[in-house]
Amino acid sequence: MHRFLIATLLACVVAPVSGFAHKIWLLPSQTAFSGNDPWLTVDAAVSNDLFYFNHFPLTLRGLKIVAPNGSIVEAENQHELKYRSVFDLPLTQRGTYRVAVVMDGAFASFMADGERRRWRGSADELATGIPENAENVQITESITRVETFVTNGGPTNEALTASGRGIELIPITHPNDLYAGETAKFQMLVNGEPASDLKVTVIQGGTRYRNTQEETELTTDAEGKLAISFSEPGMYWLSTSTSDEDTSIPQATSRRLGYTATLEVLPQ
């Protein structure tokens, strides 16, 4: 079962290269919270349609939640269901939480026993994952960040600082301060550096109820910045990917990077 899921995730990560694309996403129950004891609940899934869990659950092994004070907090009630994973998070601090699933690993393709085989796992498992008689071994490092942002009370920025690994979104407009009819600005980073010429796709949820994806294609400028005009309120999926040779795994020859964020745009 896990092997199967891994293969699915691999397909997702490879998707921008191979041309078919499942979308990976987190869907927060809401993004603006108040009250004495607010709880966030999140669906995490892999699907073609936004935001409908009808294909595969997203594994929560890479779940990493940064609290408003910068500390890492654990989600409660984590479950992997048939078509989606779920988890809850009590928002005990005031401010903005960065909720992410980060898949950080490697995949390999090689010839062994006369057939082409594929493997995927963490960097540590590489040595044991590939048989000794493997030939034509191609190892690719892979980092995909799937995230969303929620705020209890007023928006804060402490949780939104770059980790410096993979593709990241740095707010110019706060990701929990998005409103229909306004333009939001973000900066995209790769390894903590501004990423220019990155192709970014933005799609509004609710694809089941329209005929076309209606995606917006944007390209980051020389400083890695992009401006998105949100005409309607709703949940939006932002996605980008790239590849380079800047690997941190010695045996890897190339690196694939993916990023998706779910952003809620509120009505005026």
Partner: peptide
């Protein structure tokens, strides 16, 4: 109430929440 004297629903006053309430 357990949910904080109705403050849970204050973001439904969405303009006020954005302009003032949330802080």
């Amino acid at each position: 109430s357990k949910e904080g004297a109705g403050t849970k629903w204050l973001p439904d006053l969405r303009q006020w929440w954005r302009r003032s309430g949330r802080s």
